[in-house]
């Protein structure tokens, strides 16, 4: 019996010792998150770039409201037929709160909330451009506010824009059998942004936003002139003309605008 008890104690110790080292796998971590403008920008100065449409754009103000950032394990190849606001795969990181990012400022600006992550590798990032409820029919949050001028062929177009994503962005369904095919949440999510990163304890998430990409397909000469003296062209807060539609599409471009990295 003594031997039996001794064996029992040994097994007990072994079980406890093994338990201390055993795990269900993975890890949950907290991290800091930052957003910033492109490294090429100079803080406090205008950001000048050439657009693919031949415009020299000078941005004097560019603020983007980033509502939240998410990382997902899955690689999504097509989102056209998907009506879900969330990706099918597992979300591995989130920064569930946002702020107005000065995208002309290259220095890192911290998110007001802590990020949370598992230590799984992420393949897709999402930027949520909303003030809160991604499904809300009305969201008065200004997601983008820009001011500057564009010059082409000696003609200058001073412009500004105040962009929200609300009723004016709803895409009506043309199929009566599919009234919910275009949920408003899809307009508020920039996805899929390709990434390949693995959150680690002690690291931080950095989102760099290059506003040049917002204007890639904008024809400034089609902007509506809203003031003559001094002249001011203004983007509409809907998608009814080419410049406004393409600025909105530029805000939601999943490549060329948002660079999501993990800093160790």
């Amino acid at each position: 019996m003594k031997r039996s008890l001794d064996n029992g104690m040994l097994l007990a110790v072994a079980v406890v010792a093994a338990s201390c080292n055993a795990s269900t796998g993975g890890e949950l971590i907290e991290f800091d998150a930052f957003a910033a403008g492109p490294e090429a920008a100079s803080g406090g100065e205008a950001y000048v770039f050439e657009s693919p449409r031949g415009y020299t754009v000078t941005l004097r103000r560019a603020v983007l409201h980033v509502g939240a950032v998410y990382l997902n394990k899955s690689v999504q190849t097509s989102v056209g037929a998907d009506t879900s606001c969330y990706l099918a795969g597992q979300y591995v990181a989130e920064v569930p709160g946002g702020f107005d990012v000065d995208v002309l400022e290259p220095t890192l600006q911290p998110f007001p909330v802590q990020g949370f992550a598992t230590t799984d590798r992420a393949k897709t990032a999402e930027i949520w451009l909303s003030g809160g409820d991604i499904d809300a029919e009305t969201d008065p949050t200004v997601v983008a506010s820009v001011e500057g001028e564009a010059t082409k062929d000696g003609e200058t177009f001073p412009f500004d824009a105040t962009i929200t994503i609300s009723e004016s962005r709803v895409i009506p369904s043309t199929d009566p059998s599919q009234p919910g095919v275009n949920p408003i949440c899809k307009q508020r999510i920039v996805t899929p942004i390709a990434v390949d990163l693995k959150p680690t304890d002690g690291g931080s998430l950095v989102v760099r936003i290059d506003p040049a990409g917002w204007f890639s397909n904008v024809e400034f000469d089609e902007l509506e002139l809203v003031d003559d003296d001094p002249p001011l062209y203004r983007f509409r807060d809907d998608s009814l003309d080419q410049p406004s539609r393409n600025l909105f599409n530029g805000l939601r471009a999943n490549s060329g605008v948002y660079d999501v990295r993990w800093d160790e």
């Binding site: 949950l28 979300y91 990181a93 989130e94 409820d133």
Partner: peptide
């Protein structure tokens, strides 16, 4: 539902 979704475990 009124704040950005929490999607991580």
């Amino acid at each position: 539902p009124n704040t950005p979704a929490t999607l991580v475990p």
